[in-house]
């Protein structure tokens, strides 16, 4: 029987139910854990640092009310302005753009595609001219390099993780 099925059977046993009841009662009786004596001082220091910070460095919610209202209005104004400007710009571009100019741009982009096509063909020709063993060896080297990269990065992550988050 698997470990899980055994656990599921034991969970409903009277012994388990009794343990649950007793544990619940005893845990609820536990007194609060005493907070470290430095907690109050640390919080008050952090508050003091916040109070001394310039108002614009504090969270937006704690800014003076008139400034919050002003920034809210400015934000709304800016957003609606941006939408309005975008609308105008779109109309402006559509009115002035020449269909021929657009076609020329697309054609120049397509010529770039031709360059890549030629490069690809050259690469394929090189591959075909190579002997099969050389070709396989090249593939193996590439695969090995790829595997080495993954292994090194995993090892580095493990080392960092162990240093930063040691298991309790």
């Amino acid at each position: 029987m698997s470990g899980h099925s055994q656990i599921f059977m034991k969970q409903d046993s009277p012994s388990s139910k009794r343990l649950e009841t007793i544990l619940h009662r005893e845990l609820r009786k536990l007194p609060p854990v005493e907070a470290p004596s430095s907690l109050i001082a640390d919080v008050m220091t952090a508050i003091q640092a916040r109070r001394q910070a310039a108002w614009w460095r504090r969270p937006w919610l704690s800014w003076p009310a008139p400034i919050r209202a002003l920034t809210l209005c400015l934000g709304l104004l800016f957003t609606s302005g941006a939408f309005y400007t975008l609308g105008i710009a779109r109309t402006f571009v559509l009115e002035r753009i020449e269909p021929n100019a657009l076609a020329n741009r697309i054609e120049s982009l397509l010529s770039l595609g031709h360059v890549f096509e030629t490069l690809g063909r050259a690469f394929l020709l090189t591959l075909q001219s190579m002997d099969q063993p050389v070709w396989i060896a090249c593939l193996c080297v590439i695969a090995l390099m790829y595997a080495a990269c993954i292994a090194l990065s995993s090892a580095a992550l493990q080392v960092i993780a162990k240093r930063r988050f040691p298991r309790n």
Partner: peptide, 27 residues
């Protein structure tokens, strides 16, 4: 802060199991 520090710290330390981390959360 004095009234509620133990409540907050207790909740945090029981969930995190580490007093140092619990103190940061309490703060």
């Amino acid at each position: 802060l004095r009234d509620y520090q133990n409540l907050v710290f207790t909740t945090a330390v029981r969930l995190l199991g580490r007093p140092e981390e619990a103190q940061d959360i309490a703060q």
